[in-house]
């Protein structure tokens, strides 16, 4: 490309190319505007401008209700708790897996990678019922523990830990893949150099590897958080009846309480939390673009 630019026909080509580029971008941008941006704007409008017999009227009533209603707030806080706990657990589980996959060249690594990616191909509804069978009361784990003479433990099924375990398992593949791509940026030479000057394993991790994959960690966490915050199936099947996570809460408000305005308000509030993590992601992508 650069060789053509330096030639005398370059200006003509550049001019011809420009509208094509914009046209190619136009389709996805229009789709995003139509399917994502516009619904957001319309949701905010629906919740803030109330239809009254005299015409529409500005009101923050539903937001005031949400933030003064203990039940709604406890749902929001359990969602934040679940998301936070899942994010921490994901990092603790996936970082070692990714490090192992990056630096091991044994045959086993291939199998580990396959196993780590496997959850991606399991639909969450199937995962939920399998979870009840395995970790639920009198499930496989209970039976094994019993066979080994261990005491019966309380199953995480129908407690707040149920969705946590399910969501972590479900999000392992994406997190591992993103961390792994980040680890690709860490050159072997840099690590060998550090080792040559006597760095121990933990020091290599802390001073060489982590600074280089900080961006990937941020991207992986924001992706996981965005998915977990608004997750539906796993908290619905595995979680307790109350407090509910925002996903099931919204669905119930909309479908069973026939209250679209409050449901949309809950969605806007959920979106408000998610956009913070979205901005993290956008910021880190933008930072990568301008070295």
């Amino acid at each position: 490309m650069t060789t053509i630019d330096s030639g005398h026909i370059a200006p003509v080509q550049a001019e011809r190319r420009r509208p094509y580029g914009l046209l190619l971008v136009a389709a996805p941008v229009l789709l995003v505007v139509w399917l994502i941006i516009w619904p957001i704007i319309s949701a905010v409008i629906t919740t803030l401008w109330v239809q009254t017999p005299e015409g529409s009227e500005f009101s923050t009533g539903t937001y005031q209700f949400f933030f003064s209603d203990g039940y709604s707030l406890s749902n929001l806080s359990v969602t934040l708790w679940t998301t936070g706990v899942c994010a921490i657990l994901l990092l603790l589980i996936c970082l070692p897996i990714a490090l192992y996959l990056r630096f091991s060249d044994s045959k086993v690594a291939g199998y580990v990678q396959g196993l780590a990616i496997f959850p991606m191909f399991v639909p969450s509804i199937i995962l939920s019922f399998a979870f009840i069978r395995v970790l639920g009361p009198n499930g496989t784990v209970d039976l094994l523990a019993n066979a080994m003479g261990l005491p019966k433990i309380r199953s995480p099924y129908l407690t707040a830990w149920g969705p946590v375990i399910g969501l972590v398992w479900d999000n392992i593949p994406l997190t591992v893949l993103i961390l792994l791509s980040g680890l690709g940026n860490v050159s072997n030479q840099a690590i060998e150099a550090a080792r040559d000057v006597g760095a121990r394993k933990l020091q290599v991790l802390w001073y060489i590897i982590l600074p280089r994959i900080g961006n990937s960690v941020l991207v992986a966490i924001s992706f996981a958080v965005l998915g977990i915050f608004s997750s539906f199936t796993l908290p619905y099947v595995l979680g307790p009846a109350a407090p509910e996570m925002m996903g099931p809460f919204m669905q119930r408000t909309f479908r069973e309480l026939f209250d679209p305005r409050n449901a949309i308000t809950q969605a806007v509030i959920t979106f408000g939390f998610c956009i913070v993590f979205g901005l993290f992601y956008v910021r880190s992508v933008a930072k990568n673009r301008t070295p």
């Binding site: 009361p137 099924y157 129908l158 619905y236 099947v237 009846a241």
Partner: peptide, 20 residues
């Protein structure tokens, strides 16, 4: 479990089936 509620008809059947 001191006040747990399943999230559907099928899950209740599953708990009875697992003798929980």
């Amino acid at each position: 479990e001191g006040g747990a509620y399943t999230s559907g008809n099928t899950q209740s059947l599953q708990l009875l089936g697992q003798s929980a």
